[in-house]
């Protein structure tokens, strides 16, 4: 069993492949294993992609982040990339992460895959909104 060496032969960029094969910050199995302050979900398995972000927040800063994804390779890679981009950022900074930032970080997703990265960003937004709503009440 060998892994392909020539990443240019692969359907997506080397960075996408790398994040797909070695995703960062994913949450394996039972969600309750990761104590978190807020979560946000976006997408629908019916459409083929769904992402869920779990955040640990201290002093308005994302101290830890985990995610789950049902979706294609670029959905997994873009959620992984987003988790890297958001970790350690304040909530306001994290909200400024755009779909384009994720796309740039991964070295460009194919156009028809772009909605995947937008989706991850929305899950993060939803999690932060939930957190702020909780605090307001």
């Amino acid at each position: 069993m060998t892994t392909k060496q020539e990443s240019q032969d692969w359907v997506y960029s080397a960075k996408v492949k790398e994040h797909f094969l070695n995703p960062r910050n994913f949450l394996m199995g039972d969600e309750s294993k990761f104590t978190h302050d807020t979560e946000g979900i976006v997408g629908n398995p019916i459409c083929g992609d769904q992402m869920k972000m779990f955040l640990k927040i201290k002093d308005d800063k994302i101290t830890d982040i985990k995610w789950k994804t049902y979706g294609c390779a670029s959905a997994i890679a873009s959620t992984s990339a987003l988790s890297q981009l958001a970790k350690g950022k304040t909530l306001d900074e994290a909200l400024k992460i755009t779909a384009k930032d994720i796309d740039d970080y991964l070295g460009n997703l194919p156009k028809h895959k772009f909605h995947c990265s937008v989706l991850g960003h929305e899950a993060l937004e939803a999690a932060i909104k939930n957190y702020r709503d909780q605090k307001d009440h």
Partner: peptide, 25 residues
């Protein structure tokens, strides 16, 4: 709970196995 294209691409990248999927992505 496992999406077809991801299965396809893991098989391709990790084991050089070519299969097909009718999945949307």
């Amino acid at each position: 709970a496992a999406e077809g294209e991801s299965i396809q691409l893991y098989l391709d990248a990790k084991a050089d196995i070519a299969i097909s999927t009718g999945s949307a992505c």
